[in-house]
Amino acid sequence: MKQGIHPEYRPVVFRDRAGGLEILTRSTMTSEHTTEYEGRTYPVIDVDISVASHPYWTGASRLVDAEGRVERFRRRYGAGR
């Protein structure tokens, strides 16, 4: 591996703006903003959505079939063939 060409790999906090979840991990991403996490200061990267606020993981997701495509498919090809 060549020396001096790779970005610094360091601890970074990723914060979900919608759900308030904070995760400390390691990354090469940089940020001018910092946050306190467990008594230490780390760079923070704000994300729009994470497992704490995504509808699939929170159970708020649902199948929306506004145009009746599933029912039309079942009528045309039969259910359970």
Rank of each mutant, 00 (worst) to 15 (best):
T25M: 09
V64R: 12
A66G: 15
V13A: 05
Q3P: 05
T58D: 02
T34G: 00
T25W: 04
D46E: 15
G39N: 01
F73D: 08
G80C: 03
A52Q: 10
R15L: 05
E67L: 09
S61V: 04
Y9H: 12
F14Q: 10
G4N: 12
E38N: 12
A79P: 02
D48K: 14
S61N: 04
G39D: 08
L63W: 06
T35H: 04
D48V: 13
R40S: 15
Y56H: 10
Y56S: 12
T35P: 06
P11C: 05
D46V: 08
G80L: 01
A66K: 09
G19V: 04
Y42D: 05
I5V: 15
D46M: 10
V12M: 10
V13Y: 10
G59H: 03
S61R: 04
A18T: 11
E67T: 10
Y9S: 00
T41W: 03
G19A: 00
P11H: 06
Q3G: 03
R26A: 06
T35A: 06
K2G: 13
R75D: 14
L63A: 03
G59K: 03
Y37Q: 01
V13E: 07
T28L: 00
Y42S: 07
V12G: 06
R74A: 12
T28Q: 06
V12R: 04
A79R: 00
L24I: 04
G59L: 01
R81G: 12
S61Y: 10
D46Y: 15
Y56W: 08
R26S: 05
A66I: 08
I45S: 12
L24G: 06
L63I: 13
P7N: 02
E22I: 01
D65K: 02
P55C: 10
V64T: 13
M1H: 10
S31I: 00
R76C: 09
E38D: 13
T30M: 06
V44I: 09
F73R: 11
H6A: 15
S61K: 02
V70G: 00
R72I: 09
S50H: 08
V12A: 11
M29R: 14
F73I: 07
G19C: 01
V47Y: 07
V12Y: 13
D48M: 11
G39C: 02
R76Y: 05
A18R: 11
F73T: 09
A52I: 04
A79Q: 06
D65R: 00
Y42R: 08
R81N: 14
E8F: 05
T28Y: 06
I49E: 15
L21T: 06
S31D: 01
R62H: 12
D65Q: 01
Y42I: 07
E38Q: 13
L24Y: 07
I5F: 15
D16R: 00
R72V: 07
T41L: 09
D48F: 06
G59S: 01
R74I: 10
Y56A: 13
S50M: 10
H54I: 13
R81L: 06
T58S: 01
I49G: 15
E38A: 14
Y42A: 07
A52E: 12
T35C: 15
A18V: 11
G68W: 08
R62I: 01
E38T: 01
A60P: 03
P43S: 01
Y9I: 08
E8R: 11
G20I: 05
Y42K: 14
M1T: 07
V44L: 00
